[in-house]
Design a protein around this nucleic acid. Sequence first.
DNA 1: GGTCCAGGTCGAATCGATTCGACCAAGATT
DNA 2: AATCTTGGTCGAATCGATTCGACCTGGACC
Lengths: 338, 338
Amino acid sequence: MNIGEIAKRAGVSRSTVSYALTGKRPVSEETRRRIQAVIDELGYRPNASARALKEGRTRTIGLVIPPAGQRLTDMQLGFVASVVDAAARADLDVLLSPSGGEHDRSFERVVSGRRVDGVILMEIRLEDDRVARLLDSGVPFVGIGHTRHPEEMSWVDVDYDTLIAKCVHHLADLGHRHVALVNRSAELVAAGYGPGHRAQAGFDRAVAERGLHGVRVCCADDVQAGQTCLQQLLAAHPELTAIATINEAAVAGLYRGLAEAGLSVPRDFSIAGVAARHWAESVHPPLTAADVPADEMGARAVELLIQRIANPATPHRHLLLAPPVSLRSTTGPARPRA
Amino acid sequence: MNIGEIAKRAGVSRSTVSYALTGKRPVSEETRRRIQAVIDELGYRPNASARALKEGRTRTIGLVIPPAGQRLTDMQLGFVASVVDAAARADLDVLLSPSGGEHDRSFERVVSGRRVDGVILMEIRLEDDRVARLLDSGVPFVGIGHTRHPEEMSWVDVDYDTLIAKCVHHLADLGHRHVALVNRSAELVAAGYGPGHRAQAGFDRAVAERGLHGVRVCCADDVQAGQTCLQQLLAAHPELTAIATINEAAVAGLYRGLAEAGLSVPRDFSIAGVAARHWAESVHPPLTAADVPADEMGARAVELLIQRIANPATPHRHLLLAPPVSLRSTTGPARPRA
DNA sequence: GGTCCAGGTCGAATCGATTCGACCAAGATT
DNA sequence: AATCTTGGTCGAATCGATTCGACCTGGACC
């Protein structure tokens, strides 16, 4: 069932079949119908590899996600879903590459085997080998997140700096004087994970501006870690009355730890975070948070990528999103403790 | 940077470069070194499309996931992660296709454009158009889940029937006489979603065997729905003291509804379910559940698929998993109410 | 009536790999 | 000494599409 077979049965040449399909040259109404009839009968579809070889493009984009070992956060899942969805709308397929390490085979296949027309990269570090690889391979790509050199690539990102600052200001407005930042895992931050560093910067700035007492801690990305993190935090700093966090996966643990300590939210203790809207709404109690529009971000990344593929020479574009903080049920007026 | 370029610079023919790379014919140590040097210098990698065209296989598998609109449950996410992971270990790439509807373009591309060597299908219905399409397209595939005709395809599945029955027996052993089944969404069940039907069957059987009073309800896959579902359930059947469920996404809502009704778990009310191990452990309170090894299932599916691709004539294989029920914190002795 | 153009079609070249048959030289086998 | 391997290499065919140049026909135009 290749194009030659169709041509033979329709009594035309292979090129005519191709033109009938693509419309790149006129084909008489009658032959077109005859060809279409044969195609429908045999269920023919052009071989994707042959087409990709001739056209020099695969109509596929690569999506590089964190290695499969670790669970995706709800926000990351939102990115993936929206990228896949947006790509499908543009008739692009998505090739998944779970890559974190240095010389990842899957990643190498994607970038240098010309398997994809472009790549979307998630979970970018401040210094990221993968970005370097992509830059010198010449494959168009867009980051969800960016490196220490923002101008070197196109990206869509969340303005963690500003957002955490907003959270701190919100807490300060409510009278909180002793506030902690619960960051993501120590390894991730040590490895130069951008959001982690930018959240620290925003936290430090806001704390200084408002003359607060600020504590910064890292916390692994899971419920259990969140719980122990909270215990340690309260033990070391009994005067704390509020937390700002970018660690979605740990929030449930923070809740649990607070309940365990006999503290009720938001009466005795407040939490404000940065999280996917969907998630912040559905967790219990609903989290006061800067609602990251994960769905939109993935779609935007695909848009940018399609533009770069069409014209790799266009200047880089950057989208830094700073959605407003939505008040839900986890922040309230400060009530001094201890 | 194609194979001809490498050949020219190394002073050999294109075929020799190919043989040096694949090892399918002997090449002298000296020329091999010279070729390798050129390859390393230029960073050459064979063009995947050209190779796929000639070899007739793409070294890629398709993974058909539920449409992006709806969120993946933790269990589904576990499948995806483990499939991607297992595929990467076998040096296979994964092409994602979010397809649910009838004539999905993305799905059609995957099955009939010879973009993939095989397909893994998730969220299968008792009658599933996609299975029919795959069957007559001749593309090797493996299901995570199966249809009304189990023998027509290879699959890996969870034995919801047995597992829900085990849950009910466990609850009956604890003295519960009035038990409800919280199924997945009404639309899904109406559409012939296999796990939903098999859970009902297992529930009915166990309830009959133990002479219990059983109530069956459907519930959409989210926290809010779980909460309202529980309210309605208590209102209509105040005598209930336990729930068995396969609706992971609704469990948090059930918890919330119970708390709201002033019922404590497991003192006043018990819940037992079927869920991904990882998730059952991390939710609060930890759910007594039959722990579906989502990670392993994805890996097994990939294994089966690789076998089918290698030899499409092998008889179909079926893996029906029925892991034991792990006791956690949500089931206890019945305490009659009302 | 000759020229031009547009519609409609075909054949051949091309994309970048793999692979088969053929060839040659050097050593092994009888 | 003639024949047979075997290691090592090359040229050409092939996979299945797209696309360019060329060709034919018939109507419009001057």
